[in-house]
Nucleic acid binder design. Sequence first.
DNA 1: GCTGGCACTCTGTGTTCCCGAGTGCCAAGT
DNA 2: ACTTGGCACTCGGGAACACAGAGTGCCAGC
Lengths: 356, 356
Amino acid sequence: MPALSFPSGTDADGREVSTLVDDRKLAVLRAIVEDYVSTNEPVGSKALTERHNLGVSPATVRNDMAALEELGYITQPHTSAGRVPTDKGYRLFVDRLSQVKPLSAAERRAIETFLAGAVDLDDVVTRTVRLLAQLTRQVAVVQYPALSHSTVRHIELVPLTERRVMMVLITNTGRVEQRVIELPDVIDDSRIAHMRAVLNACLDGCGLAQVPDTVADLPDRVPVEDRSSMVTILSVLLETLVERHDERLVIAGAANLAAADFTIGLREVLEALEEQVVLIRLLGETTDTSAITVRIGSENPYTGLRGTSIVAAGYGSGDKQLARLGVLGPTRMDYPVTIGAVRAVARYVSQILTAS
Amino acid sequence: MPALSFPSGTDADGREVSTLVDDRKLAVLRAIVEDYVSTNEPVGSKALTERHNLGVSPATVRNDMAALEELGYITQPHTSAGRVPTDKGYRLFVDRLSQVKPLSAAERRAIETFLAGAVDLDDVVTRTVRLLAQLTRQVAVVQYPALSHSTVRHIELVPLTERRVMMVLITNTGRVEQRVIELPDVIDDSRIAHMRAVLNACLDGCGLAQVPDTVADLPDRVPVEDRSSMVTILSVLLETLVERHDERLVIAGAANLAAADFTIGLREVLEALEEQVVLIRLLGETTDTSAITVRIGSENPYTGLRGTSIVAAGYGSGDKQLARLGVLGPTRMDYPVTIGAVRAVARYVSQILTAS
DNA sequence: GCTGGCACTCTGTGTTCCCGAGTGCCAAGT
DNA sequence: ACTTGGCACTCGGGAACACAGAGTGCCAGC
């Protein structure tokens, strides 16, 4: 059990905490959170003193509990029932009372070997999401690396019929986007080859964000008879960059929802999981720091997920954040373990992506 | 209400049915199924006579019910409760008592416009699965077109670093598979280009099933210094064909499970949905006919899905069956509507794939 | 400021009871 | 030979009720 860390008066909230809540009350709060997470039952003063040697009697704990309730950190479902942490209580617990629990050596080895076997980006993402779901026993979500921070590795134009080509865009992160393009004119293979050469000469290594500017004068660099085709191709390319931007997500572990006694709101949660847009917002903005984001219950912007928390982290290759991954579970989750797992997986994935 | 169709003595089962079960008993069974599906409560003799004008009294219906129960078509949850159809009862209902309900004109228009907007194969599949989930209010599953029945449209080799290339395989169904290949030797771009040319010359239009035979002598057709690289590339190509074979599935509408009062087994169902292998088996073999497959409850091979039925159909481009799609829901589902929706969607998707 | 004691308040559980829907069977009717 | 009304019987589920147990708040004493 980690020592109780309580640097008093460090931030705006610190003052309230330091003046009204002494160390023992915080220890009580922590004990409540830990017990409630493991038993899923409101925890009473007597049980607390039995399971944690706080060195005081139940009566004292009761006084502390009353104070904590007054401050909104805990609540009781009914009069004369035990206490349950509120979202605010979990927040305090996560911010100041808990220490992230690192994975066991065995778990780390398992992650390493499991992820190392991936053959391509799709595979990395699929394995990652399954891994995360299994480690945390919760619902895992992994976002595909964003196009916006990648660079063009290659653009391929494959003639399909005489008026149709398939464009394949390959990025440095290994992501592949393809689109079928209907051309305005009939174009033979050698002209296609020329356009492909022009495209690649211009865009190879170009950051995707820069593509729109870079291609502006491209139509002028091809023979006049190919100009309208080139315009068509470019417009599809730009569309691809915009439309698919950040959109793809992979989910695993939905079955874990049923295990958690999610009597209420299961339907809403499943619905949210199918709404990519909602999920992406929940994963949060891609911040520059590699910090873990924790959204607890009502802190998250989506109605219907009142009872769920999200633990998310960014990942990427090198120092660039490419996308986010995380897990979603009941507010009543084991935050130290979950945060540890998410952090570890994010790091390993970053490592894999950087290496390849 | 469709006329009662009962061609007596048509098949092996027909004899039992025709001798022991007369038309009225079948009408009773149908009424029971219909009522139970819509109310989700065991249906009694009195309620039946009130809601369906069978022209007989409750007592008569009771006699018929006793006979139907004897034959295993219905059962009662407890003594002195109404009757509930058994899996065998649903089977008879589906096979001989129900008429597929076609979609409304509005629904058909909606399908058409919704699917027509798809830009590529991924998009077709995604839209299809959502559509199906929405139409049936159940869990929809769509399998990606199988590689085995497709032909090679193009193979692309993209140099990434001096010892690494990405292979992109494009099939005539628009499916794209990519793999990064680590080469044994350093190979410059022109030699890569040559290998690409050789590959495409040999494989363009080749059925994927024929690829293994076709490429057997390919290494001999390239300069001796490229031979080992070609072998590496071919082995990865063959791997891709085998590994990804039929594997990919897309699911939507899992939230509908929560709506159905799936008090029992929800966990199992969600687990099955994450097990691609199980799901593929459930969708069934790709048969040549365009018939709809219905698996009712215990008919399906997977424990834990006792309470669910699967309605599946094949789809494809032209007359070739490429893959399957279907929905999964409680055995207590509206089969006529569900079958109608699955059939319609399968047809439209086939149409889209054929046209493109 | 902590502690033990005490009265009080609930929830959850087990019990009992009863209503009503539904059945099976039988004898009478067509 | 089937159908029908009648009747006794069964059983699940809801209402009413009691009660044990866990938990609380408060107070007086240390």
